[in-house]
Structure formats: C-alpha cells, structure tokens
Amino acid sequence: MRNTVLAATILAFASSPGLAAEAPEVPEQDWSFDGLFGTFDRASVQRGFQVYKQVCSNCHALRFVAYRNLEAIGFSPDQVQAIAAEYEVQDCCDDDGEPFDRPAIPADAFVSPFPNEKAARAANNGAYPVDLSLITKARANGPDYVYALLTGYPEEPPEGVELMEGMYYNEYFPGHQIAMAQPLWGDDVEYADGTEATLEQEAKDVTAFLSWAGSPELEDRKRMGVKVLLFLIVFTGMLYAVKRKIWSDVDH
C-alpha cells in the first residue's frame, strides 16, 4: 500500500505541468571561447556572420551591434564600409527638415529587419523574432542552447504531439512548440573560405558569431583576467610572507 502511494506521488511529480514546461537539458559543446584562455575563432565567427546576414537577419535584429564592431572579428575597414552600405537607414533631417534615407555607415547599429515590434509580428504570423544581441547571455548555457535549438528540429514531431497552428516542434525549446520554422538546413549559405556548409557547421558558426555579439569584450576580459590573477597570486604570496615576518615576534 505504502509503495503504491509512493509510486503515485513520484508519478504525480514527474508528470506535473510545472516540470514539463522546464527547458530540457541541452548537450554541452566545445567552444573556442570557453575556459580561462578562450578566444573567438575568427574564421568561424566570420562564417557565422555570413549565416546571420543571409538567414537570421531576415527576421532577427541585432540592435546592440554596430557595423564598426565587425572590425573586431577581422573585417577590414573597407569591408565594413561595404557591408554597412548594403543597408539603408532613415536619417533626420535634410535642410527642409524632412527625414531622408541614406546608406548605412560603420557607425550605425545593425539595421533591424522590421521598423517596430508590431511590424515584426505582422510579418511573422503574430510571433516576435527576438533581438539576438544578447541571446547567448539571456539563456541558461546560452551558446549550447542556441546550437541545440538550431539543430533540434526533428523531421517529424514525436508521435502523439499535437502542434498548435503555425507552430513547429523543437526538442530543446521550452514546451517544445516554437513559432520559428527550422531556419537552417545545411547549404543555406556558400562559405567563402570553402568550408562545407553542413547544418552543424552553420549552427556552430552562427552561435560563435552570436556569442561574440553578446560578449564582444570577452577576449579583452579574459586576457586581462589572466594577468591580474597571476599578479595577485604572486602579490598575495608576498603579503603572506610579510605577515609571517611581522607576526614572528608574537606568541599566538
């Protein structure tokens, strides 16, 4: 009897809606920017930019990144200028006080695909494609999560899953129903450096790019951190020696 109650309790916990809505565990990936000495793999981040530009940016904004920031991942000033010039921004104002359109310059932030949230929702079946500037920081285990999400679309949803209209099944999205159709399939872009554009490769590259976009200071931060900690370890060791010397005449 007691065992039955126990089993029922465990079952009740396991199937409680609160737990079902929990985000599933995402598999861990190796990232070049992990660890104390991590750096961004420039080639991968540049390829990821290409994926963002050609695929993601059709719906997702990147409002906290400016074109000039691309120099940090290895683009030359001329390349950055050319990339920026592909986009139009509305400026204010000409000599008559009228707003006018001009090509973007490196100092401009990435041009958003939609002028505002309402326009974005109207174009996306009511769903709002989130800004990706901080996506890897705004999710637990961000880079792993983004990679898992992008590669987490099965060919068919598992049996018994009924999808709401306009929703797609994703293994790693909390609740499993996501409004974004599978964005990457493999061969969505042609990499300039000849890397084969498999789904996994594209997902990995674009995640590396978005991780850089979220934490552009990462390399400076870690490099300074190693120096600061090395200094502190030596300095604290010396402070300990000083303390020992000073206290050597005290009975304690």
């Binding site: 870690k222 951190g225 600061v228 900690l229 502190l232 604290t236 402070l239």
Partner: peptide, 14 residues
Amino acid sequence: LGAFFIFFLFFVFF
C-alpha cells in the same frame, strides 16, 4: 584582502 581579491576577480573576469 589579496586572497579575497583572487576569489572575487576570478568571477569578475571569467
């Protein structure tokens, strides 16, 4: 203070 800063700054930087 030195020992504490090692602990503190480890999080700040990494």
